[in-house]
Design a protein around this nucleic acid. Structure first.
Length: 107
DNA sequence: AAAGTGACGGCCG
DNA sequence: CCGGCCGCCACTT
C-alpha cells in the first residue's frame, strides 16, 4: 500500500470508541486537508475492516457509507455496538464527531 | 505523461 | 430534501 493509504488506516486506530469522523476530518488528521476524496478511495481498499475500523468514518452529513465493504447494515450495527445512536443511517455529528487528540475517556 | 476513476463535499435549482 | 454539476486528490491504466 502507499504511504498515504497507510496513514489513513493508522488514523482510524486513533478514533476513540463511541466516536466517529468524516472523510474530510481524516484527511486533515493525516495532514492532507482537502483530499477527502482520496481518503474514500483508501478506505475502499481497506485490507482488513476488522483491523481498521473504517466503519467509524461517515460523510460530512453524518450519513453512513453506502458502499461499505461489509454492507451498510453491518456498519450501522458496529456503530450502535459502540454506543452510537444511528437514526435513518445517520449519526449526530454534533454529539459523536471526534476532533483531535482527545482522551475519549467518556466513551 | 495524460486521462480515467471514485467509501467526498460544496453549490444551485 | 434530493438530484445534478463541478472541483478536489491520490491512484491506476
Amino acid at each position: 500500500m502507499t504511504d498515504f493509504e497507510y496513514s489513513v488506516y493508522q488514523a482510524l486506530l486513533l478514533i476513540p470508541k463511541g466516536r466517529v469522523v468524516t472523510y474530510a476530518l481524516v484527511a486533515s488528521m493525516i495532514g492532507r486537508e482537502g483530499s477527502q476524496r482520496a481518503v474514500g478511495n483508501a478506505l475502499h481498499k481497506n485490507p482488513d475492516p476488522d483491523r481498521y475500523p473504517c466503519y467509524k468514518v461517515v460523510s460530512g452529513e453524518g450519513k453512513l457509507a453506502e458502499h461499505f465493504a461489509l454492507g451498510i447494515e453491518e456498519q450501522r450495527r458496529r456503530l450502535e455496538d459502540d454506543g452510537i445512536r444511528v437514526v435513518d443511517y445517520r449519526v449526530d455529528l454534533g454529539q459523536y464527531l471526534w476532533h483531535g487528540e482527545g482522551n475519549g475517556t467518556d466513551n
